[in-house]
Amino acid sequence: MADSSIASANSPLYAGRRRRNAIAKGLALAATIFGLGWLVLILGILLYKGIGGLSLSVFTEMTPPPGSAGGLLNAIAGSLVMTILAVLIGTPIGVLAGTYLAEYGRHDKLSSVVRFINDILLSAPSIVIGLFIYEIMVAPMGHFSGWAGAVALAVIVIPVVVRTTEDMLTLVPDTLREAAASIGLPRAHMIVRIAYRAAQAGIVTGILLAIARISGETAPLLFTALNNQFWSMNMNAPMPSLPVVIFQFALSPYEEWQKLAWTGALLITVTVLALSIIARSLTSARKSS
């Protein structure tokens, strides 16, 4: 027995296994560096190209006509308005639907169907959502509008909020619910006063993640809100948004426009990354406490 163990330690078989192990480990490390390298590369170039164009005029001036300088004020304002409206429309529906899945119908047949469909919506191509809103809002109304853009974004918000609300409510211990029920609290009150409060941070995280998701969405806005060269707060008219302006400006041959596109791209990325970092720290603070 002792002989065979010594033999196996030096055998070609064992050496081969060790070599394969080392190669696999090396490849794994290389793959990780490769993956992280893209993040560094993309953010680095974005900073380099975007920061040059960053000045006060970006926030105070309108998008310029071709060949002249200007800012992104109307695009930023349009994005803000549509994002806020989308969150106002999408969050209540999302939270309520998530509540149903976690509280009333946790083991329902309906819930498993809704859960499945919601997961599909969560990763459905956003351009298809744009087509859908075009068909039901833009075509019947006869014109592109800020409302259509906001509703398209809301459709993207809903599945994100449904998912996180359900997940977070499921994490609330059942003993809390039982305690509430035992003192005679009706279910609705138990949910609103106990379960929501316990899951608060998680639900807010879901909403923040949804905002992060829609603030960079371009495809669903292309043919719902369209774009607008001027300041417009009229929700019934085409409305500018930062992503669509970036799309238009980046593909243009004008240098000033391309520069503004990079600056806009930097603004969006910083917003999105900040939102997701805040969202993450909210949940991790909750977990550790």
Binding site: I42, T218, V272
Partner: peptide, 12 residues
């Protein structure tokens, strides 16, 4: 975070 970067950024 790499997953969170909007696709238009990858595009530009």
């Amino acid at each position: 975070l790499l997953a969170g970067i909007p696709s238009i950024i990858y595009g530009i």
